[in-house]
């Protein structure tokens, strides 16, 4: 019995010792990024690790644009916009950079959009099996289609089926996380997949005979805006910090527009080299739309950015992800971006 107690105490002590500071995941500083100056304002930022969402974020880290603004961004990577929204609401992060769900959760009062990062106008695509008899969207009727529901891809499916006059109920839509959806498609379990780039590369690698029958580029109303969204309470108190974020982003965007391939290479080197080939990113950025700072400003002033967010929001309403349409100007505050961009120009 004494031996047992000794063993148990030893185990508990070992665990306690192990627990002392050993659960440190690292400082979050990535090699090749500029460290924040002492006394900088800390902002907890969540992001999706996809180039249309985190390109300017990472270039800002590499070139020190955030540090120059006196910001210390503490980054947390998320796998889904849903988890980002949950963390944003819980106050675990101050700001989230989201994909298509920029038009969804903020419309439900969960966060304030203050800036778009880019517009994904053709990232979503519909692919069919090699040798498939399906050559157009109309022929998806009665077929099994896999996608990740409630995402950019699902919006394309909605728009494409609507335009082809096919009811969604006439198609068997299977929901899966995109990596799993690609596996299901590659194994021949489904007739078609609605994906977003770069998963088209994984489909082509598995079988070059697979073919694309439609892309979001064919449907202007299938474009989505990727946006910077702040926690409501944090946004109300930290507008000066938001302005600094916008200023840093404008510098990053200007650098990206000045040298797109060089900037992409820098981003790949620090943030993606472990995950993807540079050629994957080069392929991916072809399907997103970016503007110069002056062009963005124009689109903020004439309301085009609100239209992009509102159009995607209507798709979420049609898909049942939102109870009703809310005017984008109620959850997308364009004023700070306009102020800062005007001062910078």
């Amino acid at each position: 019995m004494r031996r047992l107690i000794t063993a148990l105490v030893a185990i508990v002590m070992a665990v306690a010792l192990a627990a002392c500071g050993a659960l440190d995941e690292g400082s979050g500083d990535t090699k090749g990024t500029v460290k924040a100056k002492k006394g900088s304002t800390v902002v907890k930022v969540g992001y999706l690790h996809t180039i249309a969402v985190d390109d300017k974020l990472w270039l800002g880290q590499v070139a020190g644009y955030w540090a120059k603004q006196g910001l210390d961004l503490k980054l947390t990577k998320f796998d889904t916009g849903i988890a980002e929204a949950q963390a944003l609401n819980a106050g675990s992060i101050d700001v989230a950079i989201m994909g298509g769900v920029t038009s969804n959760f903020p419309a439900q009062g969960q966060g304030k959009v203050f800036m778009l990062n880019s517009i994904e106008n053709a990232t979503a695509q519909i692919w069919v099996q090699p040798g498939s008899e399906i050559t157009n969207v109309k022929q998806l009727k009665g077929k099994k289609v896999v996608t990740t529901t409630g995402t950019t891809a699902d919006i394309l499916l909605l728009r494409a089926l609507t335009k082809a006059g096919v009811s969604r109920s006439d198609v068997t839509v299977v929901n899966a996380a995109m990596p799993d959806a690609v596996q299901a498609f590659n194994s021949g379990s489904v007739d078609a997949i609605v994906l977003w780039v770069p998963f088209d590369l994984r489909v082509k690698e598995a079988d070059p005979g697979a073919s694309m029958i439609a892309s979001a580029g064919d449907y202007p109303d299938a474009a989505v805006g990727d946006g910077w969204v702040a926690n409501n309470a944090w946004y109300a108190k930290h507008q000066a910090t938001v302005k600094k974020i916008v200023a840093g982003w404008l510098q990053s965007n200007a650098a990206f527009r000045k040298d797109p391939s060089g900037s992409l290479q820098k981003v790949w080197k620090v943030a993606y080299s472990q995950d993807a080939k540079l050629s994957d990113l080069q392929h991916q950025v072809k399907y997103q739309t970016d503007y110069t700072n002056a062009e963005w400003l124009q689109r903020y002033e004439n309301g085009q950015v609100l239209d992009v967010v509102g159009t995607a929001e209507k798709a979420f309403v049609a898909l049942g992800g939102l109870p009703s349409f809310v005017e984008p100007k109620t959850f997308f505050d364009t004023s700070l971006f306009v102020d800062v961009a005007k001062q910078a120009s």
């Binding site: 979050g28 947390t76 990577k77 998320f78 796998d79 988890a83 963390a87 998963f199 995950d275």
Partner: peptide, 19 residues
């Protein structure tokens, strides 16, 4: 999945996301 940045589960998730 509770947004861990490191760990074997996260390693597997990342590997799946990038095939």
């Amino acid at each position: 999945l509770t947004v861990a940045q490191r760990g074997l589960g996260t390693y597997i998730q990342d590997a799946a996301n990038f095939s």
